[in-house]
């Protein structure tokens, strides 16, 4: 197991404009979603990745166009970091024209190019293993995002076993935010993810940093090995969920929520580089406002007519 350094107070690597834009796009997009829910404009449910945005943003530069990405219920960031198409995603969530999947899938069920999400936990890992089996030798990989709680599902283990046996290029990105819906990890997971990976002979890398550049540097050779060998890899991020599980359902004590918020990248980046941050922050906020206005004005979606 390789452990990266503890989070530095200020980022060691300066974020490039592209990464900062991506982080801010996701943040403002999801804040807008929560607002739209409050206004009663959205139906169903939504799971925001507030605080975890840096994970897919970090990964985006390590992934190739021919890689296949599997996402889950908390997938808006995974999508936007790979496909900066907030119009298509919002249209999907709102059931408007130009929706990625005609409005059929909604927030949790998206299939766009080589990005696929599903709302049933653990379901994606065997499928990702199958896709990786097909991709083996091409240099492309299958990347699957899962949460810590999803390690409760048996399918995760069945897939890891096969992925290791058959040496497939599978990158499992674990967003370990210490909680599953309302249940802390300590109450739903015995042992560790590292030991689980080890049991299957699968390489495991633990990330505690939130610094995009630093994490990327550490991950790049490991991801290259996934492609070249090929072989599966589990990358576990220690991260924090700032918001509720879905909406209005956060039963954590206030001090715990505050502790999670202290780890947020947003304020830290705002302090380090105030002028540039303020400019890009405004730019992305305004972009999202325009997207909301435009998409809200569109007619309702019809399946089959998707963008």
């Amino acid at each position: 197991m390789i452990v990266t350094a503890a989070p530095p107070r200020s980022p060691r690597h300066a974020l490039n404009d592209g990464d900062l834009r991506s982080l801010l796009l996701i943040r403002h997009f999801e804040r807008a979603l929560l607002r739209l829910f409050e206004q009663g404009v959205l139906s169903g449910t939504t799971h925001t990745c507030l605080g975890q945005e840096y994970i897919p943003v970090t990964l985006s530069a390590l992934l190739r166009d021919d890689d296949f990405v599997f996402s889950n219920h908390r997938g808006h960031g995974h999508f936007l970091a790979r496909h900066p198409d907030p119009h298509g995603l919002l249209a999907e969530i709102m059931g408007r024209e130009g929706a990625l999947c005609g409005g059929v899938g909604g927030s949790q069920h998206i299939y766009h190019r080589r990005f696929l999400s599903t709302g049933v936990q653990g379901e994606s890992l065997p499928v990702a293993t199958g896709v990786a089996l097909k991709l083996a030798g091409t240099g492309a990989l299958a990347c699957a995002y899962i949460g810590d709680g999803t390690w409760g599902e048996g399918a995760v283990y069945e897939a890891l076993n096969m992925a290791s046996l058959w040496r497939v290029p599978l990158l499992v990105v674990v967003e370990h935010n210490g909680i599953a819906q309302s249940t802390p990890t300590s109450a739903q997971m015995a042992g560790t993810i590292a030991a689980r990976a080890a049991a299957f002979g699968v390489r495991h890398h633990h990330v505690t940093s939130t610094d995009v550049g630093e994490i990327r540097d550490a991950l790049a050779p490991l991801v290259d090995a996934v492609r070249a060998e090929p072989s599966p890899l589990v990358v576990e991020f220690a991260t924090h969920r700032l918001g509720p599980h879905s909406k209005g359902d956060d039963t954590r004590p206030p001090e715990e929520i505050r502790r999670a918020q202290e780890s947020d990248w947003y304020d830290r980046h705002a302090e380090t580089d105030p002028e540039r941050f303020a400019r890009l922050d405004r730019e992305q906020r305004e972009l999202v406002e325009r997207v909301v206005a435009e998409v809200s004005a569109r007619p309702l979606s019809r399946p089959g007519g998707a963008a």
Partner: peptide, 9 residues
């Protein structure tokens, strides 16, 4: 058919 997310569908 599957049950779509969008309310109108």
């Amino acid at each position: 058919g599957v049950i779509p997310a969008a309310p109108h569908l």
